[in-house]
């Protein structure tokens, strides 16, 4: 058995380098144990595994030896792998390695969208893309500071499903380059200030501010833009599942808006003057 330890759960470059060496040496997937280096790990190591460094084998030391066969992998595979690797499923490294071996034998393998392995990896990538998109949508910054422009700092707390935070940082930089902001998550945190993006350790919800004066306006807007005459709770839930609600200030209003909706619509109809009801009857004839 070979043991491959990656530096981080989203260590694509590490996976890529290891997978390249393993694939060159034709190591079958079932002989590899993939894991992620964590502080203080070691006890969980497989006792029968050996570290796969490739030391002493010229084709495995990471450098391209002159007689090595060219190792060409399609852009499509790399794009897919780079996304799918951010999934929280521990099997992702092995699945991607299996798919890598297959695309080496059959370059068109990725085109067979009905193939179960391709399907499974595509599903991982799809879940990651959705999680990234939801983070862009549902991060809510809260301002701390004393109103002095130089002191303004916007802080958000977010709980992603997958290892997307680093990969998503660029979006927030492109959108808010002139703000000082931090996004705190359980596994990692990112901070932007003075044109520099820094990473920090995971945080707790209590590390983030618990309110912002503009939130009241936002909640007022959320209630007012809702049309009680067309309640569609299922449609809301499919795009904004309850797991996100606890970090969305406006979500606290939802139960009352739903409960009040039918009463409000009935009141509008009841309030219509009697003359209108007559004209309604005329129209329907």
């Amino acid at each position: 058995m070979y043991q491959i330890k990656l530096d981080a759960p989203d260590d694509f470059e590490g996976w890529r380098a290891a997978a390249r060496r393993l694939a060159r040496a034709d190591v079958p997937p079932e002989r590899i144990i993939w894991s992620v280096e964590t502080a203080g790990s070691g006890s969980a190591d497989d006792l029968f595994a050996e570290a796969f460094s490739g030391a002493g084998r010229p084709d495995m030391d990471g450098s391209e030896s002159a007689d090595a066969a060219p190792f060409a992998i399609s852009r499509a595979f790399l794009d897919l792998a780079q996304t799918a690797l951010l999934h929280s499923d521990p099997a992702r490294f092995a699945l991607l390695y299996m798919l890598l071996l297959r695309t080496r034998r059959a370059p068109h393998a990725l085109h067979d969208k009905a193939d179960p392995l391709v399907r499974r990896v595509e599903a991982l990538a799809q879940a990651v893309r959705r999680d990234k998109h939801k983070m862009r949508a549902f991060v809510r910054f809260r301002e701390i500071g004393n109103g002095d422009d130089a002191e303004r700092h916007f802080v958000a707390w977010f709980e992603p499903d997958h290892h997307i935070v680093r990969a998503n940082a660029g979006f927030f930089v492109r959108r808010f380059p002139n703000m000082r902001w931090s996004i705190l998550t359980p596994a990692t945190s990112i901070h932007w200030a003075d044109g520099i993006l820094r990473e920090g350790p995971g945080a707790n919800r209590s590390d983030a501010p618990d309110g912002d004066p503009v939130e009241d306006l936002w909640k007022g807007y959320y209630s007012a833009i809702f049309n009680p005459a067309r309640l569609k709770v299922g449609a809301m839930l499919s795009e904004m599942p309850k797991k996100y609600w606890r970090n969305l200030p406006e979500a606290a209003l939802i139960p009352a808006l739903i409960a009040g909706a039918q009463a409000r619509e009935a009141a509008m109809i009841a309030a219509a003057p009697r003359k209108e009801r007559l004209s309604q009857e005329r129209m329907s004839r």
Binding site: A137, F138, L231, K232, V233, M236
Partner: peptide, 9 residues
């Protein structure tokens, strides 16, 4: 990007 959904879906 849809930043929120109202109960009208």
């Amino acid at each position: 990007i849809c930043h929120a959904y109202a109960p009208d879906g």
